[in-house]
Simulated scan of single mutants.
Amino acid sequence: MTLSRRRFLIGASALAFCTTSRAAETASLSFLVLGDWGNPARREDQMRVAKAMADKAQAVPQQFVLSVGDNFYGSGVDGISDQQWLTSFEEIYASPALQCPWYVVLGNHDHRGNQQAEIDYGLTSPRWRMPSRYYSFVHDVSRTAQAELFCLDTQSLVAQTLLEKLTGYGLDRGAQIQWLDQALSRSTARWKIVVGHHPVFSAGSHGDTADLIALLKPLLLEHGVHAYLNGHDHSLSCIEDEGIAYFTSGAGAEARPVKPHPGTVFSEARTGFLAACLKDESAEFDFIGDDGSVLFKKTIA
């Protein structure tokens, strides 16, 4: 699939409108968080969530959308011309209100396909942003405050096979963790948010990720990270642990059962997404259902 000139111009115009609209508003940074969405078997559910996202973005213009992985089921994409770019992404999130940048991380299902294609698609799309498997970006919150988001490839951190569990062979732990440590150390942002596909803590069916508790939690605490955002579990939840909020937003196309978890302040087996609004002194995170209703609000100061 190639990106037509008409589609590119529409996207570029909407992107410029989105940026201009945000700049004219009260000093804040608004963005949406969506995970586990590109599932052809759940197209109707995905479209309901997409409409709720569009309604939210029309009411409150969003600076960007953050995709927390499992962008394409069940085995990623096979290249930048894969038909799924059209059927699971462009056609679903077609509203002008959603033509702002989409910052993306890889999920475990994306790893089964052509990972480089998900990076390279940004060369043809005016809104798809994934410069590498892990990266950070900075956005202004106001004239005096910024937010920095650190996007990880957690599939390369989490042991899946017996060989990986025994030896760590095939994983990319050292370089990525060193990069995160250094990037967090250098950051002067008012808000520091780490993003990955797998949860550190979760009330969903997959539950906590022991590898990430060991690898990431110490860095989050050491560097004063405010929140960790993830997908993987097909549910919506917020768990607090030692002053850090862990948000799971993996219900972009499917909802699965939740279970009790220490520190849970909210969990629900429902399709939907997370909406964030960062200001100088506080950050508000709203879980929104596929009907547009606000399910839960969490404020971080």
Rank of each mutant, 00 (worst) to 15 (best):
A189E: 04
A94H: 05
G243L: 02
A255N: 05
L3P: 01
A41C: 08
M1H: 06
Y134D: 05
Y246G: 00
S67M: 05
R43N: 11
K298N: 13
K298G: 04
F273R: 01
R7M: 07
W102Y: 09
R190T: 13
G252W: 00
D172T: 13
E90L: 10
S67R: 01
R43L: 14
V265G: 06
F8G: 00
A59C: 09
D36E: 15
R143S: 15
S88F: 03
L3C: 05
K217I: 09
Q83N: 06
A12Q: 12
D55E: 13
L295P: 04
W102V: 02
E222L: 14
V68K: 02
G122Q: 03
A24H: 09
Q115C: 13
D110L: 09
T144R: 11
D82K: 06
G79N: 09
S235I: 08
M130S: 04
P101I: 00
L220N: 04
S205W: 09
G113I: 03
L152M: 15
L32N: 03
A175N: 13
A57N: 02
R6F: 01
T26S: 13
R43I: 11
V49K: 00
L9N: 05
R256W: 08
A175Y: 09
E281A: 12
L171Y: 10
R133F: 12
M53T: 02
P257V: 07
D208L: 11
Y73V: 02
A189N: 08
A251T: 08
K217A: 14
L295K: 11
E118W: 04
G289H: 03
L184D: 03
F17I: 10
E91H: 13
L157M: 09
N71V: 04
F31C: 00
G263V: 07
D36L: 06
S282E: 11
R190D: 07
H139K: 13
R256A: 07
Y228E: 03
C18S: 15
S4G: 12
G168D: 11
T2F: 07
V105T: 09
L171E: 07
Q155C: 09
E222H: 13
F8C: 05
